[in-house]
Every structure is written in C-alpha cells, then in structure tokens.
C-alpha cells in the first residue's frame, strides 16, 4: 500500500501510534506545531530529496498560504477546510509562477533564484494592505470544520492537523513511488539522459515544484489556523533556512527524516526560546555540523546502520 516497504510500514505504524497517543501526554499545541512543520519539511524534501533541487525560498509559499487561510477565515468566515485548501491553492499558483522562472537554472543558481524571488514576495507582503504589514493578521478564528465541528477545542483541532499531515505525508509517498516519481529520480540522477529518453524534464520539475509548494501552502494555512495568526516571520528568509536545516538534520531524501527533523527542531526552539539570539547560533552550529560530519541526517544514519531504506 502506498509503496511502503516492510520496514517503512512498521515505521509508519509506529509514527501513527505516536500521533494518536502523544496528545494525551504532551501539550497538543506543541504537537500541532511539530506536525505543521513536518508537513512543510516533507513537501520541501520532495524537491531536494527526489528532484535534487534546493529551494531557498519555500517560506514564501508557507507564509502566503498562511496569509490566505487567515484572511479568508477572518474576513470571509469560510469553512476551515476550504480556507486551508485555499492556502494550498495559493501555494500552488505562486509555485507555478515562481517555479516557471526558477527551473530555468539548476544547482546553486536555483537556490539563489528561489531565495531572491521569495525575498520579492516578502517585500510584497510587507507593503500589501491585506497582510497587515508588521502586525500581521491577528485573532484569526479557528471556525468550524464542514460547518458543524467546532475547532476551538485543542483536541479537535489536533485531530484535523493530524489528518492533514497524514494526508500530505501519504500523498507525497504515493507521488515518489509513482511512475512520475521515478522520472523525478531519473532527473536527479542524470537529467540529460532523462531528456534523451523522451521526457520533458522541465515540465516534470515544474509539476513537482507545484506539488511541493501546494503542500507547503496547506502546511502554512494549517499553522495559521492553529495559532490564529499569520505574520511576516513565516514569509521571511530565515524560515526558508530553518526548513532546509530541519530536512538536512532529519535526512535529505529519506521518508521519515523531515518528520524527525521537525520534532527535534521544534523541541529545540521551544527549549531555547528563553535564550534569545542563541537560537540562531545553535542552529548555525548544527547546520555546520550536519554538513561536515552528519550529511545523512538522523534517519539516514539509522537507516544506514540497520541497512534499511527509511
């Protein structure tokens, strides 16, 4: 099912069990943050891990998804499901526009172009009237799901977030193991050869980018709904850097790495928040350590040790 191998299925069931049990033990709002970041990281991993393109501008899609969900909830009083979906659509459309430009180059140029385009989105959000500038969109109501499920309760909200995360996670897994996903891996390994087999690699890259940014938009929208706020922080380039680190720490190109990465990163931020600017220093040190000595990431190392593909 969904192309899971046996060890992956076991790992997935373990993750599922944890998602069900944890809210009774740990503060649900913290877990919701972890799940939103995990979906974000999984979506990001689709690009870096399977197409081999490092996007340094994913915050643009995350933040814009958040803005649209927050705005439609607050001003139009839409149903939560539609608002989140609109966040995803925003991410996808923006991804189509920016991706169309960015896929013209690869490697480090792709990283620089996405970074610069995301910076443009950031300046747009800073000036545009609907984002509320420095204040952001505050006091967003959580509203109702399908018209009758009240989301103001943390546990109900948690159930929704968990479903959104699992849906996104399984979708990404399905994409990777589809024929489409095989072509993506072909592009990662050797693009000229994939072209010579008759695939229009640019189209594949653009579609993959759109899928990734749509899911990123959904993650951003869900996060905005959980916390009732959408701000410039989520569009800022530091968020782009953070998601790169999250995925790198968990393991680039692994299925469960991004999830593990976000568990560690969000916990660390929670714990280190009281130390102010030391958060950035710690993140930087971890970044350098990962690149120099820990390139497989946590899940990658575990998989390597057990000789499994996780």
């Amino acid at each position: 099912m969904f192309g899971f191998s046996r060890p992956q299925l076991i790992a997935f069931l373990a993750m599922l069990a944890l998602i069900i049990v944890c809210p009774f033990v740990v503060y649900p709002v913290f877990l919701m943050r972890v799940l939103c970041m995990a979906l974000f990281a999984c979506a990001f991993n689709l690009m870096i891990g399977y197409v081999g393109l490092l996007s340094f501008g994913h915050a643009a899609f995350f933040g814009m998804g958040g803005y649209v969900t927050a705005w439609t909830m607050k001003v139009w009083h839409l149903d939560a499901s539609i608002a989140i979906l609109l966040g995803g659509v925003t991410g996808g459309v923006l991804g189509l526009c920016l991706g169309y430009l960015a896929i013209r180059r690869s490697g480090i140029y792709f990283a620089m172009i996405t970074l610069a385009l995301a910076q443009m989105v950031y300046f747009f959000c800073l000036e545009a009237p609907f984002t509320g500038g420095e204040d952001g969109i505050q006091q967003v109501p959580r509203g109702h799901l399908f018209g009758f499920i009240d989301l103001s309760n943390d546990m109900t909200m948690y159930a929704l977030v968990a479903c959104v995360f699992l849906g996104g996670f399984l979708l990404i897994h399905r994409i990777i193991h589809s024929p489409f996903g095989q072509v993506l891996k072909g592009i990662r390994e050797n693009e000229p050869r994939t072209t010579s087999l008759g695939y229009r690699t640019d189209d594949y890259k653009l579609i993959a980018f759109m899928l990734s940014t749509s899911l990123t938009g959904i993650a951003g929208g869900t996060k905005a709904l959980v916390f009732g706020i959408a701000t410039l922080t989520d569009v800022n380039s530091s968020t782009s850097g953070e998601i790169v680190l999250t995925t790198l720490l968990g393991g680039l190109g692994t299925v469960f790495g991004p999830v593990m990465g976000s568990v560690v990163m969000v916990s660390m931020e929670n714990y280190l928040a009281q130390f102010g600017a030391w958060v950035t220093v710690t993140q930087g040190v971890i970044f350098m350590f990962c690149v120099l000595a820990f390139r497989r990431g946590i899940i990658g190392e575990i998989g390597n040790f057990l000789k499994l593909k996780l």
């Binding site: 490092l54 480090i108 990283a111 030391w278 950035t280 220093v281 930087g284 971890i286 350098m288």
Partner: peptide, 17 residues
C-alpha cells in the same frame, strides 16, 4: 556544491548570532 552553500549559510547564522 550545495553543501558549500549550506555550510556557509550555517556559518553566517553563527557569526550574526
């Protein structure tokens, strides 16, 4: 080459922090 980019990015976080 991407690793060089990531490493120097981490470096800039440390220095600025």
């Amino acid at each position: 080459h991407l690793y060089g980019l990531l490493l120097t990015f981490g470096l800039s976080l440390v220095i600025e922090g």
